[in-house]
């Protein structure tokens, strides 16, 4: 009898603990949902700095929603040659030194902040654990920390600091298994307003560069090689042949994503027969390159070097039907 009472009391005392853990996770998830909502609905003008190995890239970012419910955005890199991204509704324009200005028909612009943050962020739950990690002070505001931890060790974790009042992003860090921060986005200023920022009003009146049409089937080309291994959750998105912008080297290209991280794999014939893997890091983004049996394989993306190497090693040429 005594044992039973003890047992019951133990069970009873355990339940609230479990429940509060679950509450905390739900709480963290609702924080992310609110972040996504705020990124879609608020008018704000903000600055942030992307801190990589030994340098920093400052950006200015305007965001607003006009009366028609269209999202207007301007994202400008403030150092070096001009790089601006403009977004009006579902047209995104890129103004860069390498290319004449062009527009793309897409929902989200491609910048330092992962697209998924303003999309269906909870879809990450499938491959990441979302857990709360307490409170902190960032940008003079009280912030809630949420950690997005990969279920697969072959990926990085993302830590986000969210503003307690507006739920907007105040800081983001990409962190490896040892807890070292490889790349950070630190917001340095944030203005939230009822009205659309003035420069967005100007954007609304400006005509954007012409939309480039990506030829049908360009991203679904049949390539004679496959990538056999990727960290869990990665799905194939694109396969095409193109020339690398600056070196003009023709490559075959496939890209993969798990929703948060994008990995590109490049394959081309090489002049050497073998070359050991070599890599560099640009913040959390690795570029790894090796030559195996006269085939050059490169992997680029925000994944640990071990994963990148394994992806490169797993590239397998398909035996074509033409060979007798």
């Amino acid at each position: 009898m005594k044992q039973l009472v003890l047992f019951i009391s133990l069970v009873l005392s355990a339940i609230p603990v479990k429940a509060s853990q679950q509450d905390a996770i739900d709480d963290a998830e609702s924080w992310l949902t609110q972040l996504s909502h705020s990124l879609n609905s608020l008018n704000f003008s903000t600055s942030f700095v992307v801190v990589k190995n030994n340098h920093a890239e400052p950006y200015h970012w305007f965001h607003g929603v006009n009366e028609n419910g269209e999202r207007l955005e301007i994202l400008s890199l403030l150092n070096g040659p001009r790089r601006d991204v403009l977004k009006k509704g579902d047209v995104v324009s890129y103004i860069e030194p390498e290319l004449p200005p062009y527009s793309v028909n897409t929902e989200t612009l491609s910048g330092p902040i992962p697209n998924i943050f303003s999309g269906d962020i909870l879809s990450l739950k499938e491959h990441y654990n979302i857990i709360p990690a307490g409170k902190s002070r960032v940008l003079g505001r009280s912030a809630q920390i949420v950690r997005i931890l990969p279920k697969d060790a072959g990926k990085y974790a993302y830590w986000v600091w969210l503003d307690q009042s507006s739920h907007l992003l105040l800081k983001l860090a990409i962190v490896n298994r040892k807890g070292q921060q490889l790349e950070q986005i630190q917001f340095t200023h944030l203005d939230i307003d009822d009205k659309i920022p003035e420069s967005l009003n100007i954007l609304e009146k400006t005509e954007l560069p012409e939309v480039v049409t990506i030829p049908e089937g360009f991203q679904e080309q049949k390539l004679s090689w496959v990538v056999d291994w990727l960290p869990s959750g990665f799905k194939h998105i694109n396969a095409n042949r193109h020339s690398i912008l600056t070196t003009k080297q023709p490559v075959e290209f496939q890209s993969f994503t798990d929703g948060l991280v994008h990995v590109s794999v490049y394959v081309s014939p090489a002049q050497e027969q073998q070359r050991a893997a070599d890599f560099v890091f640009d913040g959390a983004t690795i570029a790894l390159n090796q030559v195996v049996n006269g085939i050059e394989v490169s992997v680029v993306g925000k994944v640990p070097s071990v994963s990148a190497k394994r992806i490169a090693d797993s590239v397998r040429l398909l035996v074509t039907n033409n060979t007798p």
Binding site: E107, N115, V212, N238, T257, H262
Partner: peptide, 15 residues
């Protein structure tokens, strides 16, 4: 650079 560039024209990836 090309990795970034491909992300921009990857309509599928972004939406």
């Amino acid at each position: 650079q090309d990795h970034k560039q491909q992300l921009k024209i990857s309509a599928l990836a972004t939406s």
